[in-house]
Design a binder for these strands. Structure first.
Length: 221
DNA sequence: CCAGACGTTGTT
DNA sequence: GTCTGG
DNA sequence: CCAGACGTTGTT
DNA sequence: GTCTGG
């Protein structure tokens, strides 16, 4: 699955990597420990072009009576995404990319949890496949998102049996294209990334607490 | 028809 | 055990 | 995801 | 809003 990740590159690097020309965001606070319920950066196509914006991680469907449900909806399973009423519509109409430099997964051995940091071997930045929603109760309006997960590839399966979907660079434009609405076409973008492209190593359990957020979390044990 | 849930993960 | 907070 | 709280009353 | 269960 995916419940914690990093994004420490500057906005300019993100814009360059994803080909964004227009952005309301000037700078991003580097984070080495982004947790659910926090604000994340996302790329959304507004019908004309791709834009950078901020979303709360933890999807709140527009029909929710309150925002608590967002604590649970941090991931969406790729395998069942077209069947779930909470995700179905967003999958067709409200897809996004969530830029990251890496993500954490916990490996459980004899009841003990060991966090690992997973990154791409090549270019640092990549985009998670995400869904977003707009929710309002008349007083406040919240834009929120979920990260799509799939089965682990060979390398990841040693650590955990699920992992986030990382959209292939050459498929990013199509993933964001609002004109593409065929579920079968869209599902083709949700395959596990190749093991060859990834690297992983154990990191300090300091990452367990979302209150910890410093560069040292990236260090190999 | 109405009522009630709407999610994923890991663990047992 | 379950929910909230980060 | 993991960590940490989990409650009401009355009084200041 | 939309789907599932009764």
């Amino acid at each position: 699955m995916c419940g914690r990740f990093t994004l420490f590159d500057q906005i300019k690097a993100i814009q360059k990597r994803f080909g964004i020309n227009v952005s309301k965001l000037d700078e991003a606070t580097p984070s080495f420990n982004i947790a659910p319920s926090q604000s994340v950066i996302a790329i959304i196509n507004d019908g004309e072009r791709n834009r950078l914006g901020q979303l709360r991680w933890g999807l709140i469907p527009f029909w929710a009576k309150d925002t608590k449900i967002g604590y649970k909806m941090i991931n969406a399973r790729a395998e069942t995404i077209t069947e779930k009423s909470s995700f179905k519509h967003a999958f067709i109409r409200r897809r996004c990319l969530i830029p990251a430099n890496g993500f954490y997964e916990w490996k459980t051995v004899n009841g003990q949890k060991q966090p690992y940091l997973i990154q791409l071997k090549g270019e640092g930045l990549f985009g998670f496949a995400g869904l977003w929603e707009k929710w309002t109760d008349g007083e406040e309006t919240i834009f929120s998102c979920a990260i799509i997960t799939t089965e682990a590839n060979e390398m990841m399966s040693d650590i955990h049996h699920r992992m986030p979907v990382i959209v292939k660079k050459e498929e990013e434009a199509s993933w964001l294209d609002p004109n593409i609405q065929d579920p079968n076409t869209l599902k083709q973008f949700l395959l596990p990334i190749d093991s060859d492209e990834m690297k992983a190593y154990a990191v300090s359990a300091d990452v367990n607490s979302a209150k910890n957020n410093h560069e040292g979390l990236l260090n190999s044990l």
